[in-house]
Lab assay of single mutants.
Amino acid sequence: MKVMIRKTATGHSAYVAKKDLEELIVEMENPALWGGKVTLANGWQLELPAMAADTPLPITVEARKL
């Protein structure tokens, strides 16, 4: 699914347009965010693609819901 990742004042957030859902990312498998699992505030887990740590945000990526 397409997910937009952006930086907020409190960390990172994910927006899933198909579900009209925006949630804070509360847990990251990798400190650089990319190439691992993230957990959203509502409990969803997404697998993000591997990208460079300095990838500019906001960005829309293809993520997989676990």
Results as ranks from 00 to 15, higher is better:
residue 1 M to C: 14
residue 1 M to T: 08
residue 2 K to H: 12
residue 3 V to Q: 00
residue 4 M to K: 08
residue 4 M to D: 07
residue 4 M to Q: 14
residue 4 M to P: 00
residue 4 M to W: 05
residue 5 I to M: 01
residue 5 I to Q: 01
residue 5 I to K: 00
residue 6 R to L: 11
residue 9 A to W: 07
residue 9 A to M: 10
residue 10 T to A: 12
residue 11 G to W: 03
residue 12 H to M: 11
residue 12 H to R: 07
residue 12 H to W: 15
residue 14 A to E: 00
residue 14 A to K: 01
residue 14 A to Q: 02
residue 16 V to G: 01
residue 16 V to N: 07
residue 18 K to S: 15
residue 20 D to A: 11
residue 20 D to N: 13
residue 20 D to C: 14
residue 20 D to G: 14
residue 21 L to H: 09
residue 22 E to L: 12
residue 22 E to Y: 11
residue 23 E to S: 15
residue 23 E to W: 15
residue 23 E to I: 15
residue 23 E to N: 07
residue 25 I to N: 01
residue 25 I to C: 02
residue 27 E to F: 13
residue 27 E to K: 11
residue 28 M to T: 11
residue 28 M to V: 08
residue 30 N to S: 10
residue 32 A to I: 10
residue 32 A to D: 14
residue 32 A to F: 14
residue 33 L to M: 14
residue 33 L to F: 07
residue 33 L to C: 07
residue 34 W to L: 04
residue 35 G to V: 03
residue 35 G to R: 02
residue 36 G to I: 04
residue 36 G to R: 02
residue 37 K to H: 09
residue 38 V to D: 01
residue 39 T to S: 07
residue 40 L to D: 02
residue 40 L to F: 04
residue 40 L to R: 00
residue 41 A to P: 02
residue 42 N to F: 03
residue 43 G to E: 00
residue 44 W to Q: 02
residue 46 L to N: 00
residue 46 L to Y: 07
residue 46 L to V: 05
residue 47 E to A: 11
residue 48 L to N: 00
residue 48 L to R: 01
residue 48 L to E: 01
residue 48 L to M: 09
residue 49 P to L: 05
residue 50 A to G: 08
residue 51 M to E: 03
residue 51 M to P: 01
residue 51 M to T: 01
residue 51 M to Q: 05
residue 52 A to E: 11
residue 52 A to N: 09
residue 52 A to W: 05
residue 53 A to R: 10
residue 54 D to F: 06
residue 54 D to A: 08
residue 55 T to W: 04
residue 56 P to Q: 11
residue 57 L to T: 05
residue 57 L to R: 02
residue 57 L to N: 02
residue 58 P to I: 06
residue 58 P to A: 02
residue 60 T to G: 04
residue 60 T to L: 11
residue 60 T to M: 11
residue 62 E to R: 12
residue 62 E to T: 14
residue 63 A to L: 08
residue 63 A to T: 08
residue 64 R to A: 08
residue 65 K to A: 12
residue 65 K to L: 15
residue 66 L to M: 11
residue 66 L to I: 14
